[in-house]
Write a protein that binds this DNA or RNA. Sequence first.
RNA 1: GGAGAGAUGGCAGAGUGGUCGAUUGCGGUGGUCUUGAAAACCAUUGAGGGUAACACCUCCGGGGGUUCGAAUCCCUCUCUCUCCGCCA
Length: 423
Amino acid sequence: MLTLSDIRAKRNEIEAALAKRMLEVGNTLDNILELDEQRRQTQAKLDDTLAESNRLSKSIGQLFKEGKRDEAEALKAQTSGLKERTQELREEQSTLEGSLEQLLFSLPNAPHELVPAGKSDADNEEVNRYGELPQLGEGALPHWELCQQYNLIDFDLGAKVTGAGFPFYTGKGARLQRALIQFFLDEANDAGYTEFIPPFLVNEASGIGTGQLPDKEGQMYHMPADDLYLIPTAEVPLTNIYRDVILKEDELPKKLCGYTPCFRREAGSYGKDVRGLNRLHQFDKVEIVQVVHPERSQAVLDEMVAHVVSLLKKLELPFRTLRLCGGDLGFAAGITYDMEVYSAGQDRWLEVSSISNFMTFQANRLKCRYKGKDGKTQLVHTLNGSALALPRIVAAILENNQDAEGIRIPEVLHRYTGFDAIH
RNA sequence: GGAGAGAUGGCAGAGUGGUCGAUUGCGGUGGUCUUGAAAACCAUUGAGGGUAACACCUCCGGGGGUUCGAAUCCCUCUCUCUCCGCCA
């Protein structure tokens, strides 16, 4: 969430930045400032009352020590009323803090200056494009038909055993999946990211830390018996490693990566968007995460984009890079680049990676800070990106590399798959 | 699942009702000494709120209670460890 100190110091800039999300937050900001003012006044009154009762208590203790019981009893009488007043002020304070927190939780991150204004994906800015769009011959198929034809992925079986959106990968389909995971992890390791295998279930505090809760409650699978959530991305467990942590400045940056399955309820999705591998309830992804010095975060964002670009090039997939407009930006993100690959069998661009700089938004919730050389603690910046999400990569590989003979596997994967084509 | 023990500052570990935000050791930082380093010695070293700066307030796993006063007593939750059971 946005920090109170930023809202106090830069109210107008924040209002203008959030306007790029097509949000009108002037009133909310004023309410926050008003509540904050009240909070501080109440706190001051409470502090005075507590100071008074601390003083009396100390005197009473001293008198008892000196054996002056009568004087002590007399002082005790003076403390009556202080307790009630403390209680009242505490309640008032916690009400104010509750309202304040609710308002702060309701505000998404303020978009970075590079982010264009806009209300939907139609307003996203294409910043880069790479590769030739493949020209497929007659009879080219979408991946879900290729999956069936070559026995790679069984969607019906998944629907039978679990439900729609939970496919079975079989034979070379499963092998290809494992090869891609291995390839992505090796690449991330080469780029200096430390590999983790995190838990796939997280608690509520972690969901709040990275911003999935309370805003997107319905998007995660919840296990009520244990009050745990299935992770929608490795970002949640990986970033929460640094919840309530104060790092030394020279420990930055922290670079981590991890492969996990990801679980998403995807309530409200429908139609051709969810066909085949396009949108699943369970899918595999390798995620990269960085925790960095605030001054470095934009450079690191570029570095992470470059990493993903190199993966797509090695996989020989045509892609484009989009800078998301305000309206398409995720709740916690300050700036996001989406990478889309072209999938020829469907003639569609498919999002395979989303790389974001959250600036202090997550750090503020996580209470992740670093201690500078000057001894001051400041919030870090956090970033993450998919590197990469598997299903749509698989879709594009299958569709783009098909011909009458079968499906060609990109060369870089051969050492992982053990085969160079699917017939 | 059953029984027991525990949770204190970066770590270790004191503290069982009254200047305790907390003894001490290690670690960190700065300094003295040294050609340099080590050792030794000295000083310093938690977080948050609040203030122009002080003052002041809060925090000893979370929440609640008793008391003039709680790290210390009571209730409750969470987590950790040990033993038993079950089990990949």
